[in-house]
Design a protein around this nucleic acid. Sequence first.
DNA 1: TTCAGGATGTACT
DNA 2: GTACATCCTGAAC
Length: 180
Amino acid sequence: MARDLLGKHLVRNVGGEQIIVELRETEAYTGIADKACHSYGGRRTQRTETMYKPGGHAYIYLIYGMYELFNIVTGGEEDPSGVLVRVAAIVKGRDIISQNRFGKMYDSLSAYQKNNLLNGPGKVTRALKIDKSLYGTDLVNSRELYVLAGENPAGEIKAGKRINIDYAEEAKDYLYRFYL
DNA sequence: TTCAGGATGTACT
DNA sequence: GTACATCCTGAAC
């Protein structure tokens, strides 16, 4: 699923406006056997409850006290797994995205800002106004947040190690990060 | 472009 | 009390 989502369009309807981004980088968290996964060992708490829902729900959690990261649940009751969205690219709504990130219109951003709008999981959620109010959202039936069906991406899919999971012992070296 | 340091809240031990 | 699926700023290179 982490591979299949690359190149797909994520749609966010909020405040009467529409934002669309292309998914460029994802990470897989494969459930109870994955030491980097919040549901490792079958851990089931108020926070992780959504990971046990059927695939297609939104798992959103707070990290480092200030960033809310967006994941798409992919497994189900017996397989609490998901995909983290790490990086995206603008398809539609560049001024809204720029306002959400830097409080300015796109044309008045510095070159550095333009190149750093959506290149991190916390940045993507800030740009799309995704927060825990969307926790558990059914992405199949929601009008606020969903993924469009589409062709496979034209570019080559590369794989690497996941980011910032040094605590995860052998799992930190799994090649579960995928990017275009 | 790289680096150190700080901001910040919650889950879990 | 500790760690955390991060990002920003400002200064050095």
